[in-house]
Simulated assay, not measured.
Amino acid sequence: MKPTITEHEAKDRVEQYIEGVLGALPDSAERKPFTQNRSECTDPTDNGPQGRFEISATYEVTGLEPARFGEYFDAVVQWWSAHDFTVLTDSRPKDQYVFVRNNADAFDMTVQANDLGKFYVGATSPCVWPNGTPEPQALEATEPEQPVAAPPEPEPEPVRKPRRAPVDDEDFAHTDWTDGGTSF
């Protein structure tokens, strides 16, 4: 298993990429936190082991004119092209959405807008180990399983003889349980 950058480094890079995109937008653009996530890579695209996480953040960008969203999208895509990102999905003009991946470090980014005048920029890291190196439990999970000896068969318990003969229900109902009965 290969080491990765740490979660902290992934979070820093997510923020750096978002700052870079914001630099391509007008000075009036301000970011407002929308989501920040740390998600376990339960179905990683590289079929790697569990115990790794994706770090992501999405910001609503305020201070932009909705009538100029097309220009802003073009500026962001141009910034991405200059910073080694490849466009994987461009849904324009039908939808205001572009998805890219960085060729060097596999970080993903999106830019999205809606008819309500909202504009969003997001970034997601690839799967990373929390401390940059595989966790011990992940290493153990990838080691081939060693055959384990079957547990010994338990000794059969000795058959116990009843201490007294079973009571017949009919006798039980007719027994005198008062002190005047038979003493032992």
Rank of each mutant, 00 (worst) to 15 (best):
E155K: 15
P154M: 03
C127W: 02
D84T: 12
N114T: 10
N131K: 15
E140R: 15
D90Q: 11
P151H: 07
Q112S: 13
V121P: 01
S125P: 02
F119E: 00
A123L: 03
P151R: 11
G122M: 01
E155L: 07
P156T: 11
T124M: 08
Y120I: 02
V87D: 05
K94V: 11
Y120D: 01
T86R: 08
S91Q: 12
Q112P: 00
E155P: 07
M109K: 02
K94D: 06
T142I: 13
Q146C: 06
S125G: 04
Q146W: 12
T110N: 06
P144L: 12
A141E: 09
F99K: 01
E135Q: 14
V111R: 01
C127E: 00
V128T: 03
A141L: 10
G117Y: 08
E140Q: 14
A149F: 10
K118F: 10
P147Q: 10
F99I: 00
E153M: 11
K94R: 15
T124E: 03
F99A: 00
A113W: 03
P147G: 07
V98F: 04
V100N: 02
D108K: 05
T89D: 02
L116W: 08
V128N: 00
A104F: 13
D90S: 06
T89C: 06
P152C: 06
T124S: 05
E155H: 09
A150R: 14
E143R: 15
V87M: 06
P130V: 05
Q96I: 01
P126H: 03
T124D: 05
N102T: 12
V111M: 03
T86V: 14
D115G: 06
P130L: 09
S91E: 03
T110A: 02
D84F: 13
Y97H: 15
P152Y: 08
P151Y: 08
A123T: 03
C127S: 04
A113E: 00
Y97Q: 09
L88N: 12
P156F: 06
E155I: 06
P136H: 14
P156A: 05
T89L: 06
Q137P: 03
R92T: 07
A123W: 01
L116A: 14
Q146R: 15
P136V: 13
P151S: 08
P126Q: 02
V128Q: 00
T86D: 09
V121H: 04
P152V: 05
N103V: 12
G122A: 09
D95C: 04
P144Q: 13
A106T: 11
S91C: 04
A106G: 07
R101M: 11
E143L: 13
Q112M: 12
D108E: 11
P136W: 12
L116T: 13
Q112D: 05
V98P: 02
S91N: 08
D90G: 12
P134A: 12
E143G: 08
Y97F: 15
E145C: 05
P156H: 06
A149Q: 14
A141W: 05
D115Y: 04
V87H: 06
A113I: 02
S125Q: 01
